[in-house]
């Protein structure tokens, strides 16, 4: 049974802070950091935004582009490491806000930065088994890096939603698989505000090993090589890692560029690969092939071999803002406003 993406939608909050501005506070070399990370600025959620509101915005953008009746969405999965509640699902808020209640399976997922792609796989299973007509998978985050922590330069907010189904598929998912091990490179304990990480340990044994292993498995399973693809999207905690892993695997910068959004909005965590994939779908043509590998600390990678179909021409892509339009719609703020917006200032009574 054919199965894939029926529609998609992304959302990026409006406010930005530059790496240079954050570096100014900590007396670091802003230009050097910005260049090294290949990140200019990162998005900041508004006072009134969280993973639930970002998920709703992205999902509504997906719905407005297609003709799917929300009542036919039988499963809703929200992948995030920053669900607004520790206990109480984001998914029910989302399902209610798009009219997919009450006959739907709903759950929140967490797998660091790959919970969104995990949701896509789960939806595929349910669609392929015939249990549901459509599934909605969202990856969204309003991630926080501790002040002065290297993560602070990139931890941002955004997300994307995919309607997965077997009819009117705009991008067929030919193959998906995962590579998973127990590798504690990044974590956040219950009740803690900020995550912690293993420093350089997050690189070679974590990000690079999982993505390259997953990618190689996917090439083998799909019988493909890098030149078979017009686009490649890798998890993008910064701009440097995906470029390096892409090069190692044999992809050119041209294949990576359309899906590399992190330089302009930072690392949207569970939203990172989904936003990158949305940006590619904004411009992709029928017959083009997309290679996707996400990465979630802890650790695992989900790989997808995708082919864009003729159906994409029927999708009302301009009925919702493109990723580029969201990237361009921005307002930069300084560190003080950023600290206020992110609740980093201790208020009376706290």
């Amino acid at each position: 049974m054919e199965c894939g993406i029926v529609s998609y939608g992304a959302y990026i909050p409006r406010h930005r802070i530059s790496v240079k501005e954050i570096a100014r506070i900590w007396n670091e070399d802003g230009d050097g950091l910005s260049k090294g990370l290949n990140v200019i600025e990162k998005s900041i959620p508004g006072f009134d935004e969280d993973t639930a509101t970002i998920s709703v915005a992205a999902a509504r953008n997906a719905l407005v582009r297609c003709s799917v009746n929300p009542k036919d969405i039988g499963a809703v999965y929200v992948g995030s490491e920053s669900h607004p509640y520790a206990v109480k699902p984001t998914g029910t808020i989302l399902a209610e806000a798009i009219g997919a209640t009450p006959n739907s399976m709903v759950a929140d997922l967490e797998f660091a930065c790959k919970a969104g792609t995990a949701g896509m796989q789960m939806c595929m299973g349910l669609v392929k088994s015939g249990m549901i007509k459509y599934g909605l998978a969202v990856g969204a985050d309003t991630s926080q890096g501790a002040p002065m922590d290297p993560l602070e330069y990139t931890a941002s907010a955004g997300g994307a939603a995919f309607i997965i189904g077997a009819e009117n598929v705009i991008a067929k998912i030919n193959k998906t698989l995962s590579f998973t091990t127990d590798t504690p490179d990044f974590w956040r304990r219950e009740g803690q505000t900020y995550p912690r990480h293993g420093g350089r340990f997050t690189g070679e044994p974590a990000y690079f090993r999982h993505i390259t292993s997953c990618a190689k498995m996917l090439f083998e399973a799909a019988g493909t090589k890098p030149t078979d693809y017009q686009y490649a999207i890798f998890h993008q905690p910064n701009g440097a890692f995906p470029s390096k892993v892409g090069k190692t695997l044999g992809f050119t910068p041209e294949q990576l560029k359309p899906g590399l959004i992190v330089p302009y909005i930072g690392n949207t965590y569970s939203g990172a690969v989904p936003v990158g994939l949305s940006a590619v779908l904004d411009v992709a043509n029928p017959g083009e092939r997309i290679f996707v590998v996400s990465y979630g600390s802890g650790a695992g990678s989900d790989g997808f071999d995708i082919t864009v179909t003729d159906e994409i021409l029927k999708l009302r892509r301009d009925a919702a803002p493109s990723v580029k339009q969201y990237v361009d719609r921005k307002k930069n703020v300084d560190y003080a406003i950023y600290a206020k917006m992110r609740g980093k200032i201790r208020m009376a009574g706290e």
């Binding site: 006072f47 009134d48 607004p84 339009q325």
Partner: peptide
Amino acid sequence: FRRIQEESKSGVIYYGYKFQLAMPQV
């Protein structure tokens, strides 16, 4: 769709509508 209020830092979050200027290019 936005957060409108919260009952307290540990309380329920109330979501609802706000409005934005229509994005002209859409």
